[in-house]
Design a binder for these strands. Structure first.
Lengths: 208, 208, 208, 208
DNA sequence: GATGAATGAGCTTTCATTCAT
DNA sequence: AATGAATGAAAGCTCATTCAT
């Protein structure tokens, strides 16, 4: 039995493992999104994934653990969609950068409403660890917005205002819009319109 | 035994019942807020209330039922703090009315952060009934804002904009600010500053 | 305050006590007969009797105790309806005496089907004490029949047979007929026909 | 892995399941017979069966459900022991057929007194479903006897009599004898003698 | 590696009984 | 004597997790 053979076997095994993992994770996403975390039993998860109960525990440490992995994955994806504001000369204008980030985030969420639902409903108030992760995620977003606003002020784009509160407000507008147009409804929504509306509101408010 | 005596006794009994009820409700508010709904057992509730398990079921139909009562109570209180916009001649200016409503809501929530936590964390994704109640509450708020914006537009105070999206955004700013400054922190917060910041943001946005 | 006054008062009190007792017992008979012993809660009993829970315990030691009293009362009544066979010269013929006893028992039971139901359904398999009471009651009946048969044999009325088994059989015919015609149906039944049929069967069997 | 291996495994698994089921059922029979249905808790059942609480619920839907299965099993067995009267020419004489059925029923019950106890004590007055099952079983027996008597009358073996009442009486003799000699005593009984005595009584009564 | 039967801690709920008023 | 709010032991049942095969 050559080393290569073993390596090949090992590789194949790893790939199979990864596939199995994915299969369970994907099933979990659907189940959690449909029934909610607490209403979903491990039985539901393994049934949806088409594996035995024991198999589930070979890949994940339990119901709570797989939820954390799901959440990490989703938050990681979203984080990667949000990039720091570029103030270098020649960089796109800051409003345009915000617009791009907002579009990215909304389209990512729109591509998978199950993830939205998990993020905005199931993960809320679940337990302290999940709460901490969410809080840290949102705090990251808030700081991103705050720094963008700060830079905008420095550059004269943004008016004089309470930046801390404003950043929270801006974050709130996005969360609510996602909740309203991607979670609380099953209708198809024109994201373009919504994104424009949000940006417009954030830039000029009611009276502009 | 005079009739008055009977009435007196009955009255006293009713009062005692109401007191007991309140005692259990208040304990439940604290427990739910501290441990979260799902992490709270009926044992926790009765222990916190200082009554026997059976007593709890004398006053409430179960853990789920007491949560619904709590939620109804809180939502009722908040609803009563939000009154329709008055457009009669001589009525206060609309921005001032919004300011008043916002102040009322924030101060109500501020007076009892446990209720905030229950509203914004524990009640989210709990079950379909709770979801429906929350959704209907927020939808009411959204419509209140929408109608205020509409009237504002008619009167020329509010600029031309997508009112539906804007109303969601405005609602989102309030929810996020409550979450940030009343739920996710234990620090004392200067509500005045926050309320002003929110209003300012909603009226003029980033660039004014 | 004269002695007579006190006596009068005491007497009245005793009478009131007895009335109250009766009122609770009668209610219990109905409740037990309708819902069955285990399905009847003390709440059902006091509600049916129209007294407070505590009052119930002033008169009876508990749910089990009142059932025992009920059973004792019923069994006592039935026992009084069954009198020893009179073999004195001049006494009615033994078959006639049996007939009279059977009529008495059936009519007593017929007058109160609730008692039948309690006796034949609710009291069966309830607990060891109740079982012992029932067993002793039926054993008494069996012995009554056995002694009648013995006397009958001595006097030549009754043929040669296994008296012990025959007595059980005769008892069984009565129990089953009561169960069939007084418990398991709500229809009015012609007791006369049934009584005659039972006697006829016991005397001559299938083939006579 | 060959198909046979899988089949073998599946078969073994099924057999193991069946064994486990039986183990729990048998334990339940003993517990119900000894303590009575209401005095037996699920804890008693699992303790007697030597399995965990959860295992019990893997095989049965609850305490009530396992009792129903027990009852169905017993009633099914007994029903199979009672076959229609054969009036074809060349068939055994009807009294002999009755004798055979009686022997079969008594020996079946005698082989397992616990089941007798459950049938005649625990199942009486338990709940509406159980009552209906018992009533239907006894009604079947009664009709079996009635039809046998009818045929007997047609063939001249059975005298003129009230067949309906007589059938109830005959059924009652068997029930009482079973109760007396198989349930209410732990002594060994000469079934032969009892069976003969019952038949003799049914055929000829007291005076023959 | 995969399986699924088995586990048992822990949950919600009921209800016979007590006792301060 | 009468009341009914309060009690808490004990019941039935669920389900995340384990482990022998």
């Amino acid at each position: 039995m050559s080393e290569e053979a073993i390596d090949g076997r090992t590789l194949r095994a790893q790939k199979a493992r990864e596939t199995r993992r994915r299969q369970i994770l994907d099933a979990a996403i659907q189940v959690f999104a449909e029934k909610g975390y607490h209403q979903s039993s491990v039985s539901d998860l393994v049934q949806a994934a088409g594996v035995a109960r024991g198999t589930f525990y070979l890949y994940f440490d339990g119901k709570s653990a797989i939820f954390h992995e799901l959440l990490d994955e989703l938050l990681g994806t979203l984080r990667s969609r949000v990039q720091g504001v570029d103030t270098n000369p020649g960089a796109p204008a800051i409003p345009l950068q915000l617009r791009t980030t907002l579009d990215r985030v909304l389209s990512t969420l729109s591509d998978n409403r199950a993830l939205c639902r998990i993020l905005l409903r199931e993960a809320v108030g679940l337990d302290e660890d999940v709460d901490a992760k969410l809080q840290s995620f949102y705090e990251g977003l808030r700081r991103y917005i705050e720094s963008a606003l700060q830079k905008g002020q420095d550059m004269g784009y943004v008016r004089d205002m309470d930046i801390e509160v404003a950043a929270s407000c801006a974050l709130g507008t996005v969360k609510e819009v996602v909740s309203r147009y991607l979670v609380r409804t099953d209708d198809e929504v024109d994201l373009e319109t919504v994104a424009l509306g949000v940006l417009d509101f954030n830039l000029r408010g009611f009276v502009g």
